Simulated assay, not measured.
Amino acid sequence: MKKILALIVVAVAMQAHAEEESDSDLPEWMVDKITPVHSRVSRWVSSTSRGLDGFFGTDDSLRVENQSYLRLSQEFEWRETEDFDTDTSLRFRLDLPTTKERLRLVIDSDPEETQGTLEQQGSQSLRQDQTDRRNSVVGLDRLSSRDKTQNWATKFGAGVKLRFPLDPYVRMTTERLWDVGDGPWQLESYNRLSWFDSDGYSARSRWDFGRPLDEVRHFRFITNFQWQEDVDTLEFSETIELNRRLSRRSAIRYAGVMVGNSSSNPRINNYYLLTQYRRSLHKDILFMDVIPELHFPRDSNFDPRWAFTLRLEMLFTGDIQEPRD
């Protein structure tokens, strides 16, 4: 299995070094199948979001940038000593930018509050109930208009988890971006406080410190903290990451991660290395991620354990650029 993973990484990296004239890796017959479906769904996303925005907002809804999207992904996962697994995820966001108070309707099958501990998130593994679609949420976010490079950008949201009985939630998110000194270093902060009726309170914070090394490479230090009432312990992770753009359609990430918990008596639960290769398979609407990982978990006496994830993702949006979360 180790040789297979190595061959896959080498093959995709060698392919990416050649800058293709085409915007697609797909055969013509597959393009003919995908294009009509993608066009219909993207038009529906755009017309629905702009129609609702026009109803609640102004006539400018037909002209302003709208970052509504639907993202469908399919993951195939393998972990040493465990069974092969698959997972389907759907994220749908309707943006209403011209309303008096900017609103965003969110339908999410994989909200961050249901993704388990930091160790489970990092290893691509999920809690037992994560594959249960009852974790999907639908809600409304109110966005501040503040520029996060000048002030804290704050977002308030509320909604329900789609289960019976309905599970209400509220949450607040803050973001900030600073330039550090006169150099190219930047520090970005993302923080969220949430409450779900079934799970109680949770809090998470991410601090991202990085800089570009040149036109194609970017270096980052990422620190995460997380606390969940049902787990009732403070978790933390430290990541060193190098991102490199291989071509206009592909990029690769190398990362080393340390995951632990407790503030009074820190304990490291897992070390792991990963490589993530991402490629646009077709005109920036169909993407592929190849992610081999090597873990050293405490529960196996830090003996090495291999993991591998293949992810396919399709993006439906009415606007040209890819929307950001």
Results as ranks from 00 to 15, higher is better:
Thr35Cys: 05
Tyr69Val: 01
Arg142Thr: 14
Val106Arg: 05
Asp110Pro: 03
Trp306Gly: 10
Glu235Asp: 03
Ala307Gly: 12
Leu294Lys: 04
Glu229Tyr: 01
Asp208Ser: 12
Gly122Ile: 00
Arg192Thr: 10
Asn301Asp: 15
Glu229Thr: 05
Asn269Ala: 03
Leu162Tyr: 05
Phe221Gln: 07
Thr309Ile: 06
Tyr277Gln: 11
Ala203Phe: 11
Lys33Pro: 00
Leu143Ile: 03
Tyr169Pro: 00
Val290Thr: 06
Arg134Ala: 12
Asn191Leu: 03
Thr317Met: 05
Ser262Arg: 14
Ser49Ala: 14
Ser73Arg: 12
Ser136Met: 10
Gln67Ile: 01
Gln226Phe: 02
Arg176Asn: 03
Pro36Trp: 11
Met314Ala: 07
Glu215Gly: 14
Arg134Phe: 05
Ala13Thr: 15
Tyr277Cys: 09
Ala251Gln: 15
Thr173Val: 12
Met1Tyr: 04
Gln321Cys: 08
Ser123Val: 00
Met258Asn: 02
Val231Arg: 15
Tyr69Glu: 07
Trp78Met: 04
Asn301Trp: 09
Pro36Asn: 11
Arg220Asn: 14
Asn243Gly: 13
Ser202Glu: 00
Asp147Tyr: 01
Arg91Cys: 03
Met314Leu: 11
Glu19Gln: 14
Ser300Lys: 13
Thr154Leu: 13
Leu103Phe: 01
Thr174Phe: 06
Pro36Phe: 10
Asn151His: 15
Asp95Pro: 02
Pro168Met: 04
Glu188Gln: 15
Phe209Ile: 02
Leu273Met: 10
Leu62Thr: 13
Glu241Phe: 02
Leu140Thr: 03
Ile107Gly: 14
Leu126Phe: 14
Ser262Cys: 06
Gln15Asp: 15
Ile4Arg: 11
Gln130Arg: 15
Ser61Phe: 02
Arg71Trp: 15
Leu294Glu: 08
Leu5Ser: 10
Arg104Pro: 00
Asp129Arg: 14
Asp199Ile: 02
Ser300Val: 10
Phe56Leu: 15
Glu238Phe: 13
Gly159His: 02
Gln186Glu: 13
Ser39Gly: 11
Arg220Lys: 14
Ser264Thr: 11
Val180Arg: 01
Asp87Cys: 03
